[in-house]
């Protein structure tokens, strides 16, 4: 009869099936809304009343048999699962799994770390310094004479006559934000070594085509002193809005450690030489990420912080 033939046909198709994706096609063909077994089941109601129970039972038995065959085949083909994958009462797998809020590091921290990593790669060790400092170390030891206008180069915040907040080494820095200061002292350290490190840093930070230039400048604690510019990363030096049409962007102050500074820590400047530089993390972050208002960093508006 029809039922047996349908079961037989399903068996043959299933045994020939080698791909789990085809199982759905087979399931629909026999058990779907327009499937052949479903059609038979529908036809039962048209039979004479006496024949209906037997016919119905036969079709249902066939349906069970095909479902079992399908399950068995599905299991043998792999990819099967048991148990629920969704919470109780939930059946829509397209529901959102999170509410879109993720934590993150502050952009200044990320840039700071990137800088530290670059300098570590260049052979530097990382050390933290105090923020509140004796005036002696901030000024005299760094070769600022007493009562000298060079002390006006930075804002100085005093706590007592002798104690102050450490001032910034580089004029491009904003008061009291993180800065990276580099120091390298040894025999035979030259300005060429300094320029090398500055150039390698800028290339690493802003791309391999970055060039640098040094302009003479004045800092009490270095001699010779320089301000370092890098070629504009946006226009490669041809001049654009970002670099104020200069082609160059000032990024740090640097120079060869002043002999008086070496003497203050009992290094013989006849034997040792060294270089120092200071870079504002905020400055680098602004350039690298196109931040045009420095107040955004300390504003901590999450709509800003979440952009990075």
């Amino acid at each position: 009869m029809d039922v047996d033939r349908i079961v037989q046909s399903a068996k043959e198709e299933l045994s020939a099936c080698t791909d789990a994706h085809d199982l759905d096609t087979i399931r629909i063909k026999y058990l779907g809304r327009k499937g052949s077994l479903t059609a038979l089941l529908r036809a039962v109601k048209d039979l004479p009343p006496a024949e209906r129970p037997a016919a119905g039972a036969a079709v249902n038995a066939a349906k069970l048999q095909i479902e079992e065959l399908l399950s068995a085949k599905e299991a043998s083909l792999g990819g099967a699962r048991s148990g629920s994958v969704m919470p109780e009462g939930v059946s829509d797998p397209t529901l959102p799994a999170h509410d879109g809020i993720a934590g993150r590091r502050h952009i200044l921290s990320r840039v700071f770390r990137e800088m530290k990593n670059i300098f570590r790669g260049l052979g530097y060790s990382i050390a933290h310094g105090p923020d509140v400092e004796l005036e002696y170390y901030n000024f005299q030891a760094l070769n600022f004479p007493e009562e000298h206008p060079s002390r006006d180069l930075q804002d100085t915040f005093y706590i007592t006559d002798d104690i102050l907040l450490r001032t910034q080494t580089s004029p491009v820095q904003v008061r009291f934000m993180d800065q990276v200061e580099g120091l390298y002292v040894d025999t035979d350290v030259t300005m060429a070594d300094l320029k090398k490190d500055v150039e390698l840093f800028t290339r690493e930070m802003f791309g391999p085509n970055t060039r640098i230039r040094f302009r003479p400048h004045f800092f009490p604690f270095t001699e010779p002193s320089a301000e370092a510019d890098m070629s504009c990363f946006a226009c490669q030096g041809s001049g654009c809005a970002i670099c104020g049409h200069a082609g160059w962007i000032e990024i740090m102050g640097a120079g060869m450690v002043h002999p008086n500074v070496l003497r203050a820590v009992e290094y013989d400047p006849e034997v040792y030489s060294g270089f120092a530089f200071g870079i504002g993390v905020d400055r680098i972050a602004m350039l690298k990420h196109g931040v045009n208002d420095i107040r955004l960093f300390l504003g901590n508006d999450l709509r800003f912080l979440e952009q990075f």
Binding site: G103, R104, H106, S109, M177, L298, L305
Partner: peptide, 15 residues
Amino acid sequence: LDHLASRGFTETITS
């Protein structure tokens, strides 16, 4: 700070 970021905290820097 990385751990806390992955726990859902956003790092701030204040004066």
